[in-house]
């Protein structure tokens, strides 16, 4: 599974990346977590506020720091 964190390095992006890592571990998902920091690449996903969360190239959240539990649910949905 591929997870991307979209954000130019703000505190919230770091927090989201940490939560995503924790969620992947908790769910036992073999995930590759990538950070996308170029603002044009970020906009290329169609989001207008950071941080954004992309699972398998699908935008699932923007502008929010999701909790570990929230991301866990999204990971399960993506795996199903």
């Amino acid at each position: 599974m591929n997870i991307k964190i979209l954000g130019s390095g703000c505190k919230k992006c770091v927090a989201l990346a940490e939560n995503a890592t924790a969620a992947a571990q908790a769910e036992g998902v073999d995930a590759e977590i990538e950070k996308v920091t170029d603002i044009i690449a970020i906009a290329g996903y169609g989001i207008m506020s950071t941080p954004g969360l992309v699972i398998n190239e699908k935008v699932v959240s923007s502008g929010r720091v999701l909790t570990v539990a929230d991301i866990g649910t999204l990971l399960k949905e993506a795996a199903a």
């Binding site: 044009i40 970020i42 207008m48 506020s49």
Partner: peptide
């Protein structure tokens, strides 16, 4: 919410 860093994503969006 606005800062100069958000002008690009907004413009593209």
């Amino acid at each position: 919410p606005f800062c100069s860093c958000s002008s690009i994503p907004l413009f593209i969006g």
